[in-house]
Nucleic acid binder design. Structure first.
Lengths: 179, 179
DNA sequence: CATAACATGTAATGAGTTACATGATTAA
DNA sequence: TTAATCATGTAACTCATTACATGTTATG
């Protein structure tokens, strides 16, 4: 349950409206913790009820822009949450289910899906490489920059790992020497 | 929504009871698509209602073992589902939120969490390597074996990628030349 | 002033988890 | 015969998504 904490962090960086947060709330946040605007508005209301953030306008200001900012209590809550342990999320991908099922009920033309996935990971890798070149000319400038660059490198590694696997998978599925 | 299809695949391989499926329903399935027994029993009921699987005993046989098997319609449904496209799941990990937040509100002692995560990925990698050595002496024996081995290799790649990233991350966070 | 774009919100649904309830079988 | 274990199931709750509803501001 880290959406509220992602929002707190984004608002500590700089006050923003709900819609600004919803538009992938930050160059870096949106890539690894996306959320719909409905989710974000709900969480913002909860964070306000808990006294962690505040805005000028009162509740149910439909149509009127509300700019949110984090309070001191919000900052404390975030700092306490950061070092908490939680279990590693397991690899959970329908593609693995499809492959495993394909091993049982025989060839089904899965190759096209693999190629589509490969393309999407290649595109994302190119996007991340563009961000790296543009936003991190000096990644060791200070601690904050170094950690942001580290998070971006996680994305680069993630896409690279998938591209490697999918290339491997296409080789196996298209191998005429099998089956 | 691939749990029902994972169950169909497992039952096509060999009929099983709900509990047997719940105990990570298969050496290979459980590692990349886990599910609680409550979820599994609910899905089994739905699959039965849809005429895709069947068992001998009638419904609400509390305490009595029910062995499920897939029907022909279940096999058809699975074969039709396998090649369907769905979007690549994005990197979604609370650790990325923690790191990104750490870049904003300063050092918080996140290193211990990173070391714990590193340990858990190293353990899982060793587990997968053991499975590979034991169950895949000849990974190119036939198409089914080759695809199962491929899925295992995804797991190996996944753990390797995380170990690389976490090692990198510890270097950055513990670097005295920053911050 | 009409309409497009901006901005916030509710309702319904489904997936997944936690806690609990119940019955059958086996072993001390 | 009591306790542990196996086995199946219900209830309540949270998270996330989809669809929809409503009001405001800018622009032609």
């Amino acid at each position: 349950m880290s959406l509220p904490h992602a929002l707190l962090a984004a608002l500590l960086e700089r006050p923003r409206s709900g819609l600004a947060l919803a538009r992938q709330f930050d160059k870096s946040f949106g890539h690894f913790w996306s959320a719909s605007h409905q989710q974000i508005y709900r969480e913002l209301s909860r964070l306000e009820a808990d006294g962690l953030i505040a805005s000028e306008a009162e509740a149910d200001a439909r149509g009127r822009k509300r700019t949110w900012r984090a309070l001191a209590a919000g900052r404390d809550e975030l700092r306490a949450w950061i070092p908490r342990d939680d279990p590693a999320p397991s690899l959970r991908d329908t593609l693995m289910v499809r492959l495993r099922a394909e091993a049982i009920v025989g060839p089904t033309g899965l190759e096209a899906t693999l190629r589509a996935r490969l393309k999407s990971h290649e595109d994302k890798l190119a996007l991340y490489q563009g961000i790296e070149a543009r936003d991190f000319p000096d990644p060791r400038k200070d601690r904050a920059t170094a950690v942001q660059h580290l998070v971006l490198r996680a994305g680069l590694r993630h896409e690279t790992y998938w591209i490697g696997f999918l290339t491997d998978a296409l080789t196996v599925l298209c191998d005429p020497g099998l089956g």
